[in-house]
Design a protein around this nucleic acid. Sequence first.
DNA 1: CTGAAAGCGCTTACAG
DNA 2: CTGAAAGCGCTTACAG
Lengths: 327, 327
Amino acid sequence: MATIKDIAHLSGVAPSTVSHVLNGTKHVKSETAERIRQTIHQMNYTPNQLARSLKTNRTNIIGVILPNIGNPFFTGIVEALEAVLSREGYHIVLCCTHDSPVSEAESVKLMVDRGVDGLVAICPGPQFDLSEAVKRNVPAISVDHRAAQARHTVLADNRMGGFLATDCLCRRGRSRVLLITDIVITDPFFERMAGYRNALAAHGILYDQNLVFESPVSYQDGYRAMEQIFERGVDFDSVFSASYYLTMGIMRSLAERNLRVGEDIAIVSYDDPDAASFTIPALTAIRQPLNEMGTLAGELLLKEIRHEPPSEHVHTIKPALIERESA
Amino acid sequence: MATIKDIAHLSGVAPSTVSHVLNGTKHVKSETAERIRQTIHQMNYTPNQLARSLKTNRTNIIGVILPNIGNPFFTGIVEALEAVLSREGYHIVLCCTHDSPVSEAESVKLMVDRGVDGLVAICPGPQFDLSEAVKRNVPAISVDHRAAQARHTVLADNRMGGFLATDCLCRRGRSRVLLITDIVITDPFFERMAGYRNALAAHGILYDQNLVFESPVSYQDGYRAMEQIFERGVDFDSVFSASYYLTMGIMRSLAERNLRVGEDIAIVSYDDPDAASFTIPALTAIRQPLNEMGTLAGELLLKEIRHEPPSEHVHTIKPALIERESA
DNA sequence: CTGAAAGCGCTTACAG
DNA sequence: CTGAAAGCGCTTACAG
């Protein structure tokens, strides 16, 4: 590969001059500049970013750590994030952790060691630790998780979401509201449950421990959970499903028992991917403000990178109830 | 941040010695080594990978370029890929292109300039160009796309998939088989259509141009396409949907018209994400060999990195028909 | 078993 | 307007 030296030789100038036309850091006589640009083009030269970064301490890369690809919840956030960051010349690079704490720690180290200019962690596990980034002075934002070390945290108001979902059900006259939630009670799920209880209270409905079920989160697990609930003969008239993945399994279980969703049993689901409008019946769901969350996270990160004064540290964004057919 | 020099000073040795204990590249007297390890630990030192890479020309990073996150088709491939590569000490880093050719080109450049040790492009657009990687001698694998420049290409047998899907329908006595496919006819979609035609022919059914529809690919677009087909009064008894996203929209359109999927209208869908078992009715679908594709891509990349002799250049993996309720 | 020195490919004060 | 030189933080022959 050609180096900046090669280009310098071939153009009859010094490497520093080439560097300056490359970066526009100083005025170079237009003839010289043109000549240099020509040989750059002829040689198909591209600066070695590793060397550049070593010197400048900048990579123009923002690392994003997320549990996995394939979950539409992340897509919305990452897209918004990318939109605001790419506008400022940053590239986004993703690391998946598969919800493994070990992998989360490795990902932080990997990206910090590779000199990313900033880090955003989306929906990390409860023990997620950004101190490695903080120690090395790389700005970091935590999304959907209160990380002690992140200067900024972007949260969705899960309590409000839980309230909205349950309240919707109660307003429709449902009083035996099943809550099916993630078996690992991270903050968001804890908050959703709090919202559930608040809504019940607001409607004068007594909280009944026997209506709350925890399950691993997958389509299949949602199905299994619902089957067990039927086997136990639980009395209920509606479901607040705290995860879209659970919802799909729940709906199948109901269908197999010929229960009509939206009539016999009302359902409100958390999360509102495109697919939620295409289940049959379409889902009434809590839409998380993914776009806003991603945008805000991006803006906060830029501020930190530029050492602009932080506004608040924890930002909470409100979700919305999207009413369709299932409730 | 501490550097290798700092560690050397504090341990009373030369930087080269620290380097050797760091990398195990030479035997160092165990006392010395221990002392060095201690100060490394005390100082919480981590080598600067940028500097290391600049010198060694290795980053231990494999760049994966894919259209987007949020599509379960990619999840399977990436997971398998990660499994085989991480076993060999490589980390995977993702770049999303959102199906934009510009972004595809930038991603290749970004990763190559950052010195990735290998590249795999999953399902890139028709004009995708790996020559930038080839020119710089970085091994590259193309998955689900015949890239002229990639030494190795991993393909799914889409023709077979198209055949299997259509054949399934015909075997069940359907003869008016609608084909709804992506409006951008990339190789995979072209092949699926070829399989469709082959299957029709095998069953002695005349190919009818009027049964073939092209549509952008999303839930909503699938719905729209189906609605238009109804408006035109097309006569059909079954659907081969060449994309899972289309299928969801198609099913909703049928449901709204009170047509029973699997009885009035049979459907076979391409792609078999977890969700395919949880639609109502569950989908008969073509399952792509994602795990195999990812594993093979990873293995081929490793071979190239190690300059091992290539076996074949184009590897085609067979899909399978998964029979459920929709056909 | 350990160290001095060169060099990876850039950038950036500094000098002229 | 241009260039010589130092240095970013490592690794790796080479010498001893």
